[in-house]
Design a protein around this nucleic acid. Structure first.
Ligand SMILES: [Mn+2]
Ligand SMILES: [Mn+2]
Ligand SMILES: [Mn+2]
Ligand SMILES: [Mn+2]
Lengths: 240, 240
DNA sequence: GCGAATTTTTAGGCGTGCCTAAAAATTCAA
DNA sequence: TTGAATTTTTAGGCACGCCTAAAAATTCGC
């Protein structure tokens, strides 16, 4: 029977996908930037009222997943961190699978993964992981946590913080803005592309030179404008 | 952004997977047997209290998916039928995909499909359908409704209602009991296997002869006992 | 250091899906 | 046909995740 009894039915619907999304979002804030994760910050990123965050914080704290003290920032417990990485592993493996096997383009996968990350079984996740050959990066260059919870987090520099003249390889691009991904792909920018910063302007954005594959690092590649918001979605390898 | 705003978040969690399961279950009752689908019958199959069925019946009726009048059996409206078939299409394509591509055995797929049928997008469903070459039967022999909603429902006879001496090809086997599927597979019984009824006993069950692939219809295949409950999970092609 | 602005929490509600217990309707059977 | 048994509906609750509005705490700026 698919729905064994009343208890399962009450418990199972989506397990606790809301909780998983909170954990994931808290984790992300510490993964990409390191600023304290306050309820207002969380509320803004999750599109939820601050009071909803307070409520969930209490529940997650009671479950031993989040450290919560009134009026202080939220942090993940070791167990909360492990759970968050588990969800992120699912998310990124699903994205990789959609691109590598199901004919999706890299700007189309995030929303689908956002849902499936909560419903796929461990069994199916393993099958996908195996089929893909245990990838360590998703289509956007984000590291895929290993099954044991370890993450290989290579140091990187946000393009928005790179000085003119800096050059480096694109290592990660945020997958949250599909239209940015679409335009970057059109400009030939994706993980492993080599870029150099030609000009920067806090308001207007950046201009970067894209190194051609055939002629890496030379000054011959096309010049591409990157908006201010785009420049804080692109990580390049830290200069050697 | 994956979770665009509060409205989406309130609306989206699983869309209406509960409603979908009710529609699907009502449809199934008319697909396999034809007895009136009363609230108590629905409640029993869904593992839910009868009062829960009444409540949902009202909602589905208000949504134009179910015909509901107090104290009468439930039926699907044309739109409800279409929705039910859509869910069943998802379910069966997912099962087929799990078996054909993801290394699952046929007794392992039902529960996974029961969850994923509510979370996969149309886009992904199409991708799966295309990859599989638009299959028309799932691993248990159940017909997969086409994208346009049409279903090819071949006439079949429940093994439990077959007279001694009857022989026919297995066309469908209920996927609800994994252990039955496991033992049938061990005995070489699956869709397209040819069986003949050697003996039947309402209490003790049936004995069937399994025709060998090499020597179809001959009286040389192994004899296999089938429990009474098993015999009402197996459909064979109606005698010509 | 202190009042004002901001952030966070509390209080009270709402819709969904489920429950149990009680009331009402239907069906069965003598 | 009529009372008993069964089925169905109604009534009242509960947990979850979210909300708005009001209260409380913290932080900021002068
Ligand atoms: Mn999610
Ligand atoms: Mn990604
Ligand atoms: Mn199934
Ligand atoms: Mn389901």
């Amino acid at each position: 029977m698919s729905i064994p009894d009343q208890v399962a039915r009450r418990t199972q619907p989506n397990a606790d996908s809301a909780a998983e999304d909170y954990l994931k979002t808290i984790y992300h804030h510490t993964e990409w930037q390191s600023a304290p994760v306050t309820p207002s910050v969380l509320a803004a990123t999750m599109g939820v009222a601050p009071s909803s965050v307070t409520e969930m914080a209490k529940k997650l704290s009671a479950a031993g997943l989040v450290n919560y003290e009134p009026y202080k920032p939220l942090t993940l417990t070791p167990e909360g961190t492990a759970r968050a990485r588990g969800v992120i592993r699912r998310h990124r493996l699903i994205e990789t699978w959609l691109v590598d096997e199901m004919g999706y383009d890299w700007h189309e996968v995030h929303d689908e993964a956002e849902v499936l990350e909560h419903s796929i079984s461990d069994r199916l996740l393993d099958a996908i992981d195996t089929r893909l050959g245990h990838p360590t990066r998703d289509p956007h260059g984000d590291p895929i946590p290993a099954a044991d919870g370890s993450v290989e987090n290579s140091p990187a520099l946000l393009l928005s913080q790179a000085a003119v003249g800096t050059s480096g390889m694109v290592v990660r691009i945020s997958d949250r803005d599909p239209s940015l991904l679409l335009s970057l792909a059109a400009a030939g920018i994706r993980p492993s592309t080599t870029l150099s910063v030609v000009s920067r302007d806090a308001g207007a954005g950046f201009i970067v030179r894209v190194a051609l594959a055939s002629d890496a690092d030379a000054d011959t590649g096309p010049l591409v404008p990157v908006s201010a918001s785009g420049s804080s979605s692109i990580w390049i390898s830290a200069p050697a």
